[in-house]
Every structure is written in structure tokens, then in C-alpha cells.
């Protein structure tokens, strides 16, 4: 199957980190999470819905998020996800790992940018 090319390819495993971060703001259903990711990344990241739901269910299986059926704003039944304590710990761990990673990437790439600017 061909997937639509996203505007920015997601790095392996980052989708789960993004979902966890999104849920830090409060419980949300799948559609809202997708929209929120699009909005906060200034539309640079388009989350494929095709991979969002499997990712959510994977997180639920691991116990990092919990799901429950809630009434949405329009009064319809929606499956809402919220962060669990375990998920919160996982987010902190993943977050610091990501920061270390991006700092390292930054350090490696910075000289090249300076050289180019000269």
C-alpha cells in the first residue's frame, strides 16, 4: 500500500512521544490529537491517521495511556485517551532522551552551518 508522503517524515518512534506530549495537556480523542499535532507543529507535521490509531492502541497495551468512552462536545460517544502515571514517567524519560539526541545532532551540525555562513 502506498501512503501519502507527509510533509516531514516522522522519525522512528517519535509519534509515540508526540502523542504522549499532546496528552499532557489533558485527555483527548483520536481526531483531536491529530488536529492538535498538526496545529502545534505549524502544519509542518502531518500525522497520518493510518498510523495514529495503531500507535494509540500500542500505547494503551503498554499501559502508558488509558482509554474511556466520553461524550464529545457535540454529544457523540468518543474514545478519549489520557496519560497514566506510567505514561507520564515514560514521557519524562523519552523527553530527556530526545533532548540529548537533538543537542548532539545540533553540536554535530552547527559547525557546518557556521562554515556555510562564512
Amino acid at each position: 500500500m502506498q501512503r501519502q508522503p507527509s510533509r516531514l517524515e516522522l522519525l522512528q518512534g517519535t509519534l509515540e512521544l508526540i502523542i504522549l506530549r499532546t496528552l499532557l495537556a489533558g485527555p483527548a480523542h483520536g481526531h483531536a490529537i491529530a488536529k492538535h499535532i498538526q496545529r502545534t507543529s505549524e502544519d509542518l507535521l502531518q500525522v497520518e491517521t493510518g498510523s495514529l490509531y495503531p500507535a494509540l492502541h500500542r500505547l494503551e497495551a503498554k499501559g502508558w495511556v488509558a482509554a474511556s468512552w466520553e461524550k464529545s462536545d457535540k454529544g457523540k460517544r468518543a474514545r478519549c485517551y489520557r496519560l497514566t502515571a506510567l505514561g507520564r514517567r515514560q514521557l519524562a524519560a523519552e523527553h530527556s532522551k530526545w533532548e540529548a539526541f537533538s543537542r548532539a545532532m545540533g553540536l554535530i551540525l552547527k559547525p557546518a552551518a557556521q562554515e556555510e555562513g562564512r
Binding site: 500500500m1 501519502q4 497520518e48 491517521t49 493510518g50 490509531y53 495503531p54 492502541h57 494503551e60
Partner: peptide
């Protein structure tokens, strides 16, 4: 269209159930 192949999404999600 935005959601993509619905059957595949279902398959992938079911796979997540393990």
C-alpha cells in the same frame, strides 16, 4: 482519503492488541 486504507488501519490496530 485523509484516513487512508481503512482495512489496513484496522489490521495495524488489531496487531497492536498483540
Amino acid at each position: 482519503r485523509a484516513l487512508g486504507n481503512l482495512t489496513l488501519v484496522r489490521e495495524d490496530t488489531r496487531a497492536a492488541w498483540g
